[in-house]
């Protein structure tokens, strides 16, 4: 069973963000990048399934040169091969144009299952996997908290709903599964894995390799564009306490007693 995993490299959620001079995105200079959190869980799920069903995992990512690091890490964790959609034309896409490129790359892979994270920690469209499934004409499920591959070409899926409930259903394969963080416990790369990853192939693909025109991908193929980004101004904001830890703690306790009257 061949499984494709779509991962995205995103700014580390712990990193301090600055708006870029052009105002349309964050300043990426000196910004630490990592594999998107829910994509880590998707990769772990794929590796586990591949181990149980004698499968192979191919990891796919769209993005600039720096994305090689994310792909190399996925290879170190156990993916067999990587596909890097890398071209200036791929940049600046939305969920629609990114999904179109990923679908074309996956269609060439002959896989029975696509796994990806439910949402990226940067753009947060929460839509790329579902749109990709639409292009492939496969069933999909978003926010998946449980996945078992069954005999006979189906999957038993547990999907998160609001207020602490899950729904359970069966999907026919091939399918696209969008994984929620917390579905499993992602492994760490072993030294052996890191060494082996250096010899594993990363195949570079351009829009032309995918049979797509440059106008169909990236910013040109996007239906939505970002005009600018800014720090949100919502609510009155907190009264910020001053001083070192001890001084702030003393002020806070005083205010909680005398002002807010909750102590």
């Amino acid at each position: 069973m061949k499984i494709a995993v779509c991962i995205k490299q995103v700014p580390d959620t712990e990193a301090r963000l600055r708006v870029a001079k052009h105002g349309r995105w964050v300043d990426e200079d000196d910004l630490p990048f990592v594999i998107n959190e829910s994509d880590n869980y998707a990769l772990e799920q794929a590796l586990t399934i591949a181990e149980q069903h004698a499968g192979e995992v191919v990891v796919i990512s769209l993005g600039p040169e720096r994305v090689k690091d994310a792909l190399r890490k996925a290879l170190a964790l156990g993916a067999a091969r990587a596909v890097h959609l890398v071209d200036e034309a791929f940049q600046g896409g939305d969920a629609a144009s990114t999904a179109r490129a990923l679908a074309a790359a996956i269609a060439a892979q002959d896989c029975a299952l696509v796994l990806t994270g439910a949402q990226s920690d940067d753009s947060g469209w929460g839509a790329t996997g579902s749109i990709l499934a639409g292009h492939l004409g496969w069933p999909h499920a978003w926010l998946v908290m449980g996945l078992e591959i069954e005999d006979g070409g189906s999957a038993r899926v547990t999907r998160e709903m609001e207020s602490g409930m899950n729904e359970i259903f069966r999907l026919k394969l091939p399918a696209v599964i969008e994984v929620q963080a917390g579905i499993n416990h992602p492994r760490y790369a072993s030294l052996k894995g890191i060494m082996q990853a250096k010899r594993k192939p990363i195949e570079r693909q351009t829009p032309a390799d995918l049979g797509l025109g440059v106008e169909q991908v990236g910013a040109s193929g996007a239906r939505v564009e970002i005009l600018d980004v800014a720090v949100p101004t919502s609510g009155d904001g907190a009264e910020m306490l001053e001083g070192d830890a001890a001084a702030m703690a003393a002020t806070l306790v005083e205010k909680l007693r005398r002002e807010a009257r909750v102590l």
Binding site: V26, S123, V224, E225, I226, V229, A230, V231
Partner: peptide, 14 residues
């Protein structure tokens, strides 16, 4: 919201 709500983007259909 983008970046987990740390920033907000103004977007439009292009």
């Amino acid at each position: 919201p983008i970046m987990g709500g740390k920033l907000q983007a103004r977007v439009r259909a292009r």
